[in-house]
Simulated assay, not measured.
Amino acid sequence: MTTDPELPRRFAELTTAHVADACLRAGVPVRCAPPELRPVVAGGRLAGRVLPARHVGSVDIFLEVIDRAAPGDVLVVDNAGRGDEACVGDLVVLEAQAAGLAGLVVWGLHRDTVDIRAVGLPVFSLGAMPAGPQRLDARPAAALTSARVGQWTVDDGDVALADEDGVLFAPADRVGELFDLAESIRDTERRQADRIRVGESLRAQVGFEAYLAGRTRNPALTFREHLRAVGGAIEE
């Protein structure tokens, strides 16, 4: 299985926020990584098939998984969100770049920040610390088949999408549908923004006065239901 080359091209014109709203509209679980997971390289963006690896204290697991990677994959490192060691450094990032990977998502810490930024490959992690691991644990059976990031477990049936808003995981077999919806949401929001700039308030565009009147008649009416009726896109 390889990353669809259309994936990064289409995501380049979207944001994770657009895709998250598309998931909501499509009834797909919105699987966002915890907000502490941030880009090491400012402006970093990535999109690709999940390439999972569970860290147990040694760099060899990364070399092994990169050895079987396809260009465009995203290395998703599960270090259990640990805050007592850095599990990824500049050499792993360089190796991933040389193998054609799209970037790394690290559920844990990194080090060699200056060197990683110089490499330029997108890396998302929980933060940095100087010390590497001082342990070597037994490798779990799922070490190269799945990874956990926050509350979510992901595998090569998922894609990772990331930008300045954070990291989002989506099922690979539905990402085309989600991108179609996300593009529609993006276009609607852009039209709404353009109209605000020329003097038409968002309240007027979404018929907010009519919503308030409708809620008076029907207290159970939600703003989201109203937006669906008028074609708004600010909540999904």
Rank of each mutant, 00 (worst) to 15 (best):
A17M: 06
C32V: 11
A229V: 12
C23Q: 08
P8K: 10
Q205F: 08
R139K: 15
R68E: 06
L212P: 02
R31C: 09
N79G: 14
A204P: 04
V65R: 15
R148P: 06
F62P: 03
D187I: 05
D115N: 09
G72E: 06
D180W: 05
A138P: 01
A143S: 14
R68V: 15
P171W: 05
A47D: 03
H110K: 07
V40R: 09
L37P: 05
G214M: 05
V65Q: 15
D194Y: 02
G57A: 09
A22T: 10
V56F: 07
V19P: 04
P219A: 00
V230H: 03
L144Q: 05
E177F: 07
A204H: 07
R54P: 00
L104G: 01
G120N: 11
E13G: 13
V154S: 04
P71F: 05
R117P: 03
G72R: 11
A210H: 05
R217E: 13
A70D: 13
Q151I: 10
R45I: 00
A102V: 01
L46Q: 05
V65E: 14
D187M: 08
R31I: 04
P133H: 06
E236S: 13
V74L: 02
G100M: 03
V88K: 06
R228T: 11
R135P: 04
V119H: 13
G207D: 09
G166D: 04
G176N: 14
G232Q: 07
F62D: 12
S58I: 08
A118E: 13
L202Q: 09
W107M: 05
Q151F: 00
G48V: 10
P171V: 09
F62H: 11
V28P: 06
W152Y: 12
A182P: 01
G127V: 08
D155N: 15
R174C: 01
R45C: 00
T222M: 00
E183P: 00
A141N: 08
E209D: 14
F208D: 13
V159G: 00
P35F: 11
V50P: 02
F169E: 02
G43K: 04
G231Y: 07
G57H: 10
R9A: 15
L109R: 15
L161M: 12
T16V: 11
A128Y: 03
G57M: 08
V74K: 02
D173M: 07
V76K: 00
L178S: 10
L24H: 10
R49T: 07
A33T: 01
P52A: 07
T216I: 07
G199N: 06
R25H: 09
E235F: 12
R111L: 07
V28C: 06
Q134S: 15
T145V: 06
G232E: 01
R54A: 12
G100S: 10
R228K: 11
L51I: 01
D194E: 14
L63V: 12
L109D: 11
V119R: 06
D112H: 14
E209G: 14
G43L: 02
R186L: 08
D163N: 08
P52I: 12
E36P: 00
R68Y: 08
V114P: 03
A172G: 12
R190Q: 15
E13I: 06
E13F: 04
V56D: 09
A138I: 01
G132A: 11
P133S: 15
A26F: 07
L161R: 04
G127N: 11
G103Q: 00
G103V: 00
P35N: 08
V74E: 02
V154M: 02
E235S: 07
R38F: 04
